[in-house]
Design a protein around this nucleic acid. Structure first.
Lengths: 275, 275
DNA sequence: CTTTAAGTTCCAAATAATGAAACTGTGTTT
DNA sequence: AAACACAGTTTCATTATTTGGAACTTAAAG
């Protein structure tokens, strides 16, 4: 399964440290030193010192019983800050609530991270949102509605990089599996103003997605409404397009206008009320 | 060499980079270069390059319109991995569900991170009191039930460090504000097996908390049941202690026994069902 | 058109990272 | 019990990166 390596290499020591973090995260389970060593380009001593330092910093966590590493708690703390300080997710929240209530369908808010789709928030008709089990997930960009909607509005440089970094795995027989096919679809998306995913990632799952843009044309993210072919077809799903586009525009405008509320030094985060 | 100057100890370049991340997160809002420079020990050029590199790595995110930095999306992705790979949170989940259903009160799962309480999971009360804490949030350790429960079971070295790192701000007139008072309470907690928070953090909020320990005595975290003085007193709340302790023990045992399920290389995480 | 502040680049000196090899400790085989 | 294999840890001379004062380039204010 190709493309798990970050060829971005550079950025000195910090870049290497981040690579190690990604590597640990990529295992999707607690991992031993020897396993990491095998899948790593670093020599033993170097990798060892990285793990020591990162663990010491709380970016990794080490289980002495099992002798395994996992991504650390400090990341959770920092991610919480990332989520709340973002100029997109907190703003979009009420809009997602509304959109979810109106459509009764699954709604996603996504951003682009390292040419991948990162789901930042979600409304599922049935289940309530659980922050770190649902948001934070990543998915492919070339075969999802939000992914294509976002890529379509990247500037040329970023687009080239993003397009070339996709892995083009054929999830279904409708998946676009070439750069050319993807670029053609992106052109279509730009002229139409929204993206569709016609079972390109999962059979039976279709969706429409709109980019979130600032007035200056900068792409911030995307939102989508997802349905299943068992319950609906594209005709029905596309009736939501104007609504979704309006919501996307509103979020884009607000995100641009919005200033972070002034925090008084004292009574800002004392509302924890939890022991 | 001495090196007594820096308030924040550094693990070389990586430690410094992490400090910068924390600093950005600590502002709790998008922050400009100049603001960071002012609150930083680093010289201009150094800080500048750190911000460049971290932004480039996705650990920070830069808003070109506003010229501000916030913690980056990559942290959200990594935190998601931290949450799912942790040997505590996923295991504790069903137990929290059960405890929440039985008690009808707010239930927290916390871990210790840098001598602070980090809330890792949470269940809201049936009759939701106004509550702002959420997963990822941090709180003080010296005046919360979970915080004291965890500190009481640290080994001597870690305890000394933790106790000395508390800020001892007097939130209410019942807050313990000295190292001596805290240590005395921790002794009591050890002999009793659970911690109480008697409005020490917020007026009207009381709670009982039990540590989660491995059979080897290693402290993994804590769980708590929180109530409000308007609806109940300690007599009532403490009837839950045996139940909470049993749950904590079960979680501790499972966390120790548990092996991460083998991941098939193929059909691992494609169940995203999101476009 | 100045002036001031904010952000960016340069480069020699200082510092930190590197990694081959040697070492330690633990558990297993002969 | 000695010999071995193995996973993890430490050492240290070499090499590469980081550092930060100062100079430079905008961008806004007077």
């Amino acid at each position: 399964m190709g493309g798990e390596q970050t060829p971005v290499a550079g950025d000195g020591t910090i870049g290497k440290a981040c690579d190690v973090l990604d590597q640990v995260a990529a295992f999707a389970r607690p991992v031993r030193f020897a396993e990491l060593l095998e899948s790593s380009d670093f020599p033993k001593a170097t990798l060892y010192r990285f793990l020591q330092t990162l663990t010491n910093q709380g970016m990794l966590s080490y289980d002495p019983d099992r002798q395994t590493y996992t991504p650390g708690l400090r990341l959770v703390r920092l991610a919480h800050a990332a989520w709340t300080q973002s100029s997109l997710a907190p703003i979009a929240r009420p809009f997602l609530d509304a959109l979810s209530a109106e459509t009764g369908e699954t709604v996603h808010l996504a951003q682009l991270d390292a040419s991948q789709v990162l789901y930042v928030d979600k409304r599922n008709a049935a289940q309530p949102v659980e922050m770190y089990s649902q948001a934070g997930k990543v998915g492919p960009a070339y075969c999802t509605g939000v992914g294509k909607a976002m890529m379509a509005y990247l500037d040329e440089t970023a687009l080239d990089r993003a397009v070339s970094q996709q892995s083009y795995h054929k999830f279904t027989d409708k998946t676009l599996t070439s750069e050319a096919a993807l670029r053609a679809d992106l052109d279509l998306i730009r002229s139409r103003g929204y993206a569709i995913d016609d079972e390109e990632h999962e059979p039976g799952i279709i969706c429409i997605a709109c980019p979130i843009l600032t007035s200056g044309g900068r792409m911030l993210g995307a939102i989508s409404v997802t349905g299943s072919t068992e319950r609906m077809n594209f005709q029905q799903l596309e009736t939501w397009v104007p609504r979704v586009r309006r919501v996307a525009d509103q979020i884009g405008t607000e995100a641009q206008t919005w200033r972070f509320p002034e925090t008084r030094l004292n009574a800002d985060k004392d509302r924890i009320q939890a022991t």
